[in-house]
Each structure stands twice: as C-alpha cells, then as structure tokens.
C-alpha cells in the first residue's frame, strides 16, 4: 500500500518537474561555443552540423513524440531551401532574416497541405506516401528547371549581411553563429511544445491512438498540427542551408537526405530532443573524419558504426547512456 502511494507520488513529481531546465541542458550550447574558440577552422562543418541538428529536431517532433513515421522529410527541407533561394535569386529579396521567415511559412504551408492527406494513413502506407511526396516535389523541381535551376542547381543566390552588420566570411564564422542562434530559438519552441499538454497528447497518440480517440482527443487534428510545425522547422533548416551554401540543387529533396536524417535521429535516440544533437554531431564528425582519412572507403566505416549502434544500442547513444546510468545507480544501491 505504502509502496503504491510512493510510486504515485514519484509519478506526480515527474509530471510536475519534467519540463524544468536542468544544468546538464547547458552542455550542447557550451560545446557549441567551445568548439568555435577551439576549432575556428572547422566552422564550415560546424554550420552544417547545426543545420542538421535543427532538421533532426523537426523529425524528432513527429517521429519521436507523435510516432509518425516518414521517409520523405527532405520534402520540407527542400521546399524551405528552394523558397529561400528563389526569393533571392528571382525576386531579389536579400534580407536574410525575413527570407527565413517566409521560407518557414511556405514549408509549413506545404506541410499542412500534405499533412491533411498523409495523416489519414499510418504504417507502411504512410511510409510510401511520405516518400512519394518527396519524389513528386523533386520531379516538379526537375521539370521546372528554368525556375529551380534543376540538377545543375540554382545560382545567383545572394544575401545581405545579417542585420546589415555581420558579413559572411570564407571561414563560415558568421553563418555558424547565425545558424546557432536560430537553433536556440527553435529548440526552445520545440521544448515548450513537447512539455505542453499538446505535446503530452502527442505522446498519448504515439503510445495508443485508439485510446486517445476514446478519451475524446482530436487525434487527426493534433497530428496535422505537429506535422505542420515539424515541416516549418524542417523548412527553416533548409532555408539556413540555402543561405549558408548560396546554392540549391535537386539533392535537397532527395531520398538520401530523408534517409540520413532518420539514421542520425535513431543514432542519437528518438523522442528525447537531445538525440538530434548527439546523432548529428557523432554522424557528421565521423563522416567528415573518415572521408578525409580515406575518400574511397569511408562509407564502410560509417556503415559499421551504424550496425554496431543498431546491435548494441537499440535506443541510440543517449539510450545507451541511460542504461549505463541506471546500471551504476543499481550498483550504488
């Protein structure tokens, strides 16, 4: 009897305190700042990692929290990248911050529109349909290559310095801080969503959609809502990608990109926000270092690392850390 009460109290305490910021959560930002001062020559890679973290975060919202599986998330990344790039290349819209907002809105709109159809399905059907959305968009971009630049890429993208002050340099220092600032904003938003009642209801849908229906939760609407937000964030990361590269090709909509971002998230750990950080850093640093070591065979090394993670760390690297911690705690008891 007393045990049950204590268990209930612990559960209540968890609900009350789960959303509070903990000291350890400062770690990614300290790492990001430290990386800048210790490795100033690596900021091109750093910028790519920050953008990938943001993209993985957007996937975590739907895959990790709402349980929506997708193989076409690059669709929204690509829409954001193309929207941002074409605003500059065709309309001469060179103010970077407003262009990012615009691209985010466009991607969110496309996400909402496709979400209205996609969220009616689940399982393999959903997987195939998300894949088709990305393929359709890619073929559309290939067909209208006069506007999109097609396979050869959209050139002529130019953006003014951020707030008219910070010029872009060859070392990507400005891009790094710029992308990192956006990541901080996106992370706070994502974190709020996850710990809000809305976020909890998403977890409910992931765990048991039927029961959520039974308690009267608007499952479909919730799913479309989170899909739209996720598409918007993916679009924002795509737009940052377009600004950092000043170049966009059909590749941004490619299946490889959708697949890799999923691998990155699973590598880090799904449904825990920080998995996006860990996965992106580990995967991209590994890929960068291995491909420098051996431009021909690096894929073997990356593949081997992934196989090991799938075999021995089912819940990703963060899951492995959790297990290590609970093992230590047990031993201490």
């Amino acid at each position: 009897m007393a045990d049950a009460t204590r268990a209930r109290e612990r559960a209540t305490a968890h609900v009350v305190t789960a959303h509070r910021w903990r000291w350890v959560e400062a770690a990614p930002w300290l790492v990001a700042t430290g990386a800048f001062f210790l490795l100033p020559d690596y900021m091109t890679l750093g910028t790519q990692i920050v953008i990938t973290v943001m993209f993985a975060l957007s996937l975590d919202l739907i895959l990790g929290f709402a349980g929506i599986i997708t193989l076409g998330h690059a669709a929204y990344f690509g829409v954001g990248a193309y929207a941002c790039g074409m605003l500059s290349a065709h309309l001469g819209w060179t103010e970077p911050v407003s262009a990012l907002f615009a691209a985010t809105l466009v991607a969110a709109f496309v996400g909402w529109l496709s979400g209205l159809v996609l969220m009616r399905y689940h399982g393999l059907t959903l997987l195939m349909l998300t894949l088709s959305v990305a393929i359709l968009l890619q073929q559309l971009a290939n067909t209208y290559s006069d506007f999109t630049g097609g396979f050869d890429g959209l050139t002529g993208i130019y953006f003014d310095p951020v707030f008219g002050v910070f010029e872009y340099d060859l070392w990507s220092h400005t891009h790094y801080w710029y992308a990192l600032a956006w990541l901080a904003v996106v992370f706070v938003v994502a974190r709020r969503i996850v710990y809000s009642p809305f976020g909890r209801s998403l977890v409910g849908i992931r765990e048991n959609a039927l029961r959520m229906h039974a308690v009267g939760a608007p499952v479909f609407r919730r799913q479309v809502a989170v899909y739209t937000v996720s598409a918007g964030i993916a679009g924002l990361s795509g737009a940052l990608f377009a600004q950092a590269n000043t170049f966009v090709t059909l590749d941004v909509l490619g299946f490889t990109r959708s697949g890799i971002i999923m691998i990155i998230l699973i590598l880090g750990g799904t449904g825990r926000l920080y998995g996006a950080f860990v996965g992106a850093i580990v995967y991209m640093v590994l890929e960068d270092e291995l491909s420098k070591l051996t431009p021909e065979f690096w894929e073997f090394g990356v593949g081997l690392a992934l196989v090991l993670v799938v075999l021995f760390a089912r819940n990703g690297i963060l899951g492995l850390l959790d297990r290590a911690r609970s093992l230590l705690a047990e031993r201490g008891r």
Binding site: T44, L170, F241, T249, D251, G254, T256, P295
Partner: peptide, 16 residues
Amino acid sequence: RDAKHPGGDVAKAAVR
C-alpha cells in the same frame, strides 16, 4: 576530398 553526390553542398564545404 570526397564530393560524394552531385548536390554541390559537400563539394563546396570541402573546397572551403
């Protein structure tokens, strides 16, 4: 350096 795919981004990062 490996440019990997025809997407431009990896090659550009490598050149940088």
